[in-house]
């Protein structure tokens, strides 16, 4: 079993596996707690804060499970892009003069202290695994970016093209639904209006 030079001599491979197991359980607990918090919040922005923590913990679990590429994608696309879309929509639904006070009320310490604690736990778990054991010896196999990429663009090339079509259809659909109806005035009435 390959060990990294960072691991101290005292840690045998079995010890490392136990350690990874404990970290996995801690991270899973964070994931479950934050996901439960998501569906029990009354305010959408608070739920989104917890949902970001949930996605981060799931990304860490992917890293433990030997899928570092997917872990990065989870952070970039789920915790980045999709959450930004949700936040945009929540903000759009709350336009008005009260928006400033509302946002001040949304970000009181009582709101962000919970997600911060959970993310701190995740950070400690991530640092521990980075210092001791770079995602090997976890009981599961490491599948790297190279294998995924080769398989994706040879066997699954047609599926990738279809995914592109799906995203294109989604963009066009969202644009169509989002565009406002044009008000049509008669061209003679238009002059009398002004």
């Amino acid at each position: 079993m390959k060990t990294s030079p960072l691991i101290s001599e005292a840690l045998s491979p079995e010890k490392i596996m136990e350690k990874i197991d404990i970290l996995f359980y801690i991270t899973s607990a964070v994931a479950v707690i934050s996901t439960i918090m998501v569906i029990t919040r009354y305010h959408a922005v608070h739920a989104l804060l917890y949902l970001v923590v949930s996605f981060l913990s799931i990304a860490l679990i992917f890293y433990f499970a030997g899928a570092p590429f997917i872990a990065a994608l989870e952070v970039i696309i789920y915790a980045g892009a999709i959450m930004v879309l949700f936040i945009f929509v929540v903000m759009m639904l709350n336009l008005g003069p009260r928006t400033m006070e509302q946002e001040r009320g949304w970000t009181t310490p009582a709101i962000w202290i919970g997600p911060s604690i959970l993310s701190a736990v995740l950070l400690v778990a991530f640092m521990t695994v980075l210092m001791n054991n770079p995602a090997e010896d976890t009981g599961l196999n490491l599948v790297g970016v190279q294998e995924v990429g080769i398989s994706l663009f040879t066997e699954y090339l047609l599926a990738v093209e279809l995914t592109g079509l799906l995203l294109m259809a989604a963009i066009i659909g969202a644009y169509h639904l989002g565009s406002r109806e044009k008000k049509i005035y008669h061209r003679y009435l238009e002059k009398t209006d002004q």
Binding site: A65, A67, I82, N141, S151, L152, A159, L167, G173, G178
Partner: peptide
């Protein structure tokens, strides 16, 4: 990962694309 197979990760990529499309349409 349990059988050292990249197919699992590729399926996750497709789930990701479907989720992105669903969110775009759903939020509109």
């Amino acid at each position: 990962s349990s059988r050292a197979d990249p197919n699992g990760q590729i399926m996750f990529l497709f789930i990701l694309a479907v989720a992105a499309a669903e969110v775009a349409i759903g939020l509109a």
